[in-house]
Design a protein around this nucleic acid. Structure first.
Lengths: 221, 221
DNA sequence: TATTCATTTACGGATTTCCGTACGGAATTA
DNA sequence: TAATTCCGTACGGAAATCCGTAAATGAATA
């Protein structure tokens, strides 16, 4: 079993449950952080002390509050920790269920396990940890279909840029200027229009409003 | 302190934490249900046994799964339980933070406490329970501003109807026909346009797309 | 350098939204 | 009954979008 585990999770109630669970599983050292920044600090310190963590369990979304932080999400935290400790196994424990996000976590970020918070997530967590120990990859049954999704491969950062500007109330006309200012290419009104139109095809959206609505549902923006 | 508490919460991890917390507070009998339907059954049974619960702690949103249920949300559960046991105190423990929802829970549903899941929610939960014991109403600091919100009073079902149709890709032109078909009045294109324009004022939205984006963020649609 | 092909931009007309104004009817008040 | 206000509708011009076509640019290849 793992001996030293780092938990990054903002909700106190879930922290309590995770700690209790890991203790029952016989994990010797358990540390938890309610902020990503703190988690990174703990990871750094552990390396300095020549006693690095051998597993990271992390949430994805962290509530913002009065405190100003540099790392705002689990994705950022994972990237930051992987930078100083590339080989650390990562288990994501989250309510997130957007296929877009899950697919990218497994295939791009290459996390070792994705456990979806839910009615039986604690037993899944245990199984996931055992699977990681044996070098495998775990993903919760009820979201496993995410890996089969096709259409998202076609969507690039450029598209996300357009979509989020639209959602923030920027017109295509304004976007043309904005893109030129920020030196984002292509930036012609015509091209942006074409791209929006293509996105509507991909998502089978009837209007641009519909497109933005769908994008939000899917968690793309 | 309360002696018999019913918990309605789908996530196993949070259940673990809640039960542990209540035990530490000295609550004698604790029952929990992962489905609203089960919670209602337990409440009914307790009344039949002449030993009703003296507090309900409930989440608001429950994940849907293979099981077909009749009660799908915390709001519905609260209504159902209040019907058979009108005087039971209710504490809502949830991640929900839409001012829209909170305001209605406190002012219309008249729940006794609203605790927002977060970094220090367990200590808030304890305070909330003590407050209820003394006949008070508790609401988490960080969402307390919800009660002061004004603008939502101005929004009617008619507006929500328009907004959700827009989000589904219906144009205003089509909506005029649709409303006439469904006998929703007013239904002139001109009036719907005006209404949308007014909503943009209220929400300070720059474009209609922006308006829909904001509406989704606020949980109105 | 010339050729080809794909990408990006420019343009223009049809449609829709946007927004102000004006009209008609119903309810309210004097 | 006349006057006022409110609500819904009608209309029209300006702006933005939608969508197809054509021109320009640029990279790769011969």
């Amino acid at each position: 079993m793992f001996t030293k585990v780092l938990i990054a999770e903002d909700f106190d109630s879930i922290n309590i449950a995770l700690i209790q669970t890991l203790e029952n599983m016989g994990v010797k050292e358990i540390e938890h952080a309610k902020y990503c920044d703190d988690a990174l600090l703990k990871a750094k310190k552990a390396i300095q002390d020549k006693a690095p963590f051998d597993l990271l369990i992390s949430d994805l979304s962290f509530e913002t509050d009065y405190r100003t932080v540099s790392l705002t999400s689990g994705e950022e935290l994972i990237a930051a920790i992987r930078k100083i400790q590339p080989e650390i196994p990562v288990l994501v424990y989250t309510v997130e269920d957007k296929t877009f996000v899950i697919k990218s976590l497994i295939e791009d970020v290459k996390i070792n396990a994705f456990v979806h918070k839910g009615r039986n997530s604690i037993s899944q967590l245990k199984t996931a940890m055992e699977t990681i120990l044996f070098g495998g990859t775990f993903i919760s049954q009820n979201v496993a279909h995410a890996l089969k999704e096709k259409s998202f491969n076609e969507i690039e950062d450029y598209d996300v840029e357009i979509l989020s500007h639209l959602a923030k109330g920027v017109t295509i006309e304004e976007m043309e200027q904005l893109f030129k200012l920020k030196d984002i290419k292509p930036n012609s009104k015509s091209y942006i229009e074409k791209r929006v139109s293509k996105l509507k095809d991909i998502f089978k959206a009837k209007t641009t409003i519909h497109l933005i609505s769908l994008s939000k549902d899917l968690g793309i923006i």
